[in-house]
């Protein structure tokens, strides 16, 4: 059974557009109730946003944009069949697809792990369905 991964960019947080200690940019998902501003709140913490900024030089050196690095990271797992990306602007799609076929070297993957550190959730038991249908 393979996996189709949703939100490989963590609602856009991994694009690096949200900076620690600063308000979210106008028109971004974090400012838009209809775009799931509530969903993204779990990631809008300074420690998370600071770690995301540490990914920027890694992406740059790999010749990738931040969204491309996030999607490519997901696709390194051979059990993943596909990564789902969304877009509020067509240019975002053109960028995301640059992650297709990218191979990340072991050293790059290690640098990513080091940057993210203990902030990553690695417990599969955190995948849960609600106890009732209405939840």
């Amino acid at each position: 059974m393979s996996q189709i991964v949703w939100s490989p960019m963590a609602q856009g947080v991994l694009s690096g557009k949200y900076l620690p200690g600063q308000p979210a940019p106008e028109g971004s998902r974090a400012t838009d109730e209809k775009g799931g501003a509530k969903m993204i709140q779990r990631w809008m913490r300074d420690d998370v946003l600071a770690a995301v900024q540490e990914l920027k030089p890694i992406a740059q050196e790999a010749g990738l944009s931040m969204p491309q690095l996030a999607v490519a990271w997901v696709l390194q797992n051979p059990n993943v069949a596909s990564a789902i990306v969304g877009a509020s602007r067509p240019e975002q799609i053109a960028d995301s697809v640059g992650a297709a076929g990218v191979k990340l070297e072991a050293e790059v993957l290690k640098r990513i792990d080091d940057a993210v550190g203990g902030l990553a959730e690695r417990d599969p038991a955190q995948t849960k369905s609600p106890a009732t249908r209405e939840a």
Binding site: R29, G36, V71, L75, I84, A100
Partner: peptide, 10 residues
């Protein structure tokens, strides 16, 4: 396709 277009929230 290894990248899927999804339309959740948009």
């Amino acid at each position: 396709s290894e990248i899927t277009f999804g339309n959740w929230l948009t």
